[in-house]
């Protein structure tokens, strides 16, 4: 069977004048439909670059990205991104931010009434319908991230790309949002590729964890299956042996074998 999303021998390097920096080296990864995959690694290892390549926001230097056997080389709503810093348009209300995406993606396919209903449905999904008329400046960071998630979900993407979506949030809000993402993934069975630097988050949410080595020329160091049954409950997992073992594996990888070198 052909994989749903295939990242095939991707290299990425940046050139400035005569100096060429290799950021990613020979990244190969396949993701099945409905799978939740996390990419974890120290900051600066090129995780976000990899996500941007899948999103089409950055180009590959070599190799290719295939989604349903079609090459990806420009951004599009079939690979919706939830950005780290929410990236909501501050002059639009919560509703209008999501509606902009809905209008653009379903402008031809759905009637005005259907688009309105679809916008509200997605706001409902992230429990933000109550703030539909607020502007991003008037809601909290966690709420903004929820709206960003609603905007991405509303595009009905083939792959949902999450770029450290909860990195800027406090621990409690982050836990709430992780639960939301799990519930939504359970319900809609989206294919998700998430960038994170939080070990617990990776183990809790993912089916597989892709661990990246430190840059420059970062590559995939190890891929860990997380054989935990879904739905997963945060509290029950805290004492689960499998959970702890997975967590241990990731921690070992990150802090022993590929320790972050500050000077690099």
């Amino acid at each position: 069977m052909q994989p749903y999303l295939r990242i095939d021998h991707v290299d990425k390097s940046f050139s400035r004048g005569a100096v060429t920096t290799v950021v990613l080296k020979d990244i190969t990864l396949t993701i099945d439909k409905g799978e939740f995959v996390s990419i974890i690694g120290h900051s600066g290892c090129g995780k976000t670059t990899l996500l941007n390549i899948v999103a089409g926001l950055a180009s590959v230097s070599a190799g290719c990205v295939l989604l349903e056997n079609r090459e990806v080389n420009e951004p599009g709503p079939d690979r919706a991104v939830v950005f780290q810093n929410h990236s909501l348009l501050p002059w639009l209300t919560v509703y209008d931010n999501v509606r902009l995406a809905v209008d653009k993606v379903f402008g031809g396919a759905k009637s005005r009434h259907e688009r309105d209903a679809w916008t509200l449905h997605n706001l409902d999904l992230v429990q933000m319908a109550h703030a539909r008329d607020k502007r991003p400046g008037e809601i909290s960071g966690g709420m903004k991230q929820r709206v960003g998630l609603a905007r991405a979900l509303a595009m009905e993407p083939k792959v949902l790309l999450l770029d450290e979506p909860f990195g800027a949030l406090d621990a409690l809000t982050r836990a709430h949002l992780q639960d939301s993402v799990m519930a939504i993934h359970q319900k809609l069975a989206n294919t998700v590729l998430m960038i994170t630097h939080d070990v617990d988050e990776a183990v809790l949410l993912s089916d597989r964890i892709v661990m990246m080595t430190n840059g420059p020329a970062a590559c995939i160091g190890e891929v860990l299956e997380v054989p935990l049954a879904r739905p997963r409950k945060r509290l029950e997992l805290a004492s689960s042996a499998t959970y702890l073992k997975c967590r241990q594996r990731v921690l070992e990888f990150l802090y022993e074998r590929h320790r972050f070198v500050e000077a690099a």
Binding site: G56, L57, P75, P77, F83, S87, K104, M155
Partner: peptide, 14 residues
Amino acid sequence: IPQDYRNVAAVLRL
């Protein structure tokens, strides 16, 4: 114009 807004526009294919 923040790069974020440009990225949003690119993903939405405005």
